[in-house]
Lab assay of single mutants.
Amino acid sequence: DNLVIALHSYEPSHDGDLGFEKGEQLRILEQSGEWWKAQSLTTGQEGFIPFNFVAKA
C-alpha cells in the first residue's frame, strides 16, 4: 500500500495543503513533483504534502 510516516510535523501554508504531526501515517493518493496528494489515516482529511517530510512506512 502507499503508506508513509511523517518525519516532521507540517503546518499548511496554502489552501489545499494537508497539515500533519510527526509520526502520523498517511496514504499517498498521487505522486507528482515535490507535492504529493495524501490522506491522513488519523483525520481522514486529504490534501497536498511536501514529499520530503515523509518516508515509506
Rank of each mutant, 00 (worst) to 15 (best):
D1H: 11
N2L: 14
N2G: 09
L3S: 03
L3T: 07
V4G: 05
V4K: 02
I5T: 08
I5K: 04
A6W: 03
L7S: 04
L7M: 08
Y10A: 02
Y10H: 06
Y10S: 02
E11M: 13
E11Y: 14
P12V: 07
P12G: 09
S13W: 11
D15T: 11
D15S: 11
D15V: 13
G16Q: 08
G16T: 09
D17V: 09
D17K: 09
L18Q: 01
L18C: 05
L18H: 02
G19M: 07
G19K: 12
F20Q: 00
F20M: 06
E21D: 08
E21M: 13
E21I: 13
K22Y: 06
K22L: 07
K22T: 06
G23N: 05
E24H: 05
E24Q: 07
E24L: 03
E24R: 00
E24K: 01
E24F: 04
Q25N: 08
Q25R: 13
Q25D: 02
Q25G: 07
Q25W: 15
Q25S: 10
Q25C: 15
R27G: 00
R27H: 06
L29T: 06
L29D: 02
L29P: 00
E30W: 12
Q31N: 10
Q31Y: 14
S32Y: 13
G33I: 03
E34W: 14
W35L: 08
W36E: 00
W36H: 02
K37I: 10
K37C: 11
A38N: 00
A38Y: 03
Q39A: 08
S40T: 04
S40Y: 02
L41S: 03
T42I: 13
T42H: 11
T43A: 01
T43E: 01
G44Y: 07
G44T: 03
Q45L: 13
Q45W: 07
Q45H: 10
E46K: 11
E46L: 12
G47C: 06
G47Y: 05
F48S: 05
F48M: 12
I49W: 03
I49G: 01
P50D: 05
F51A: 15
F51C: 15
N52L: 08
N52G: 09
N52H: 12
F53S: 08
F53I: 07
V54N: 04
V54E: 03
A55Q: 11
A55L: 09
K56I: 13
K56H: 12
A57G: 10
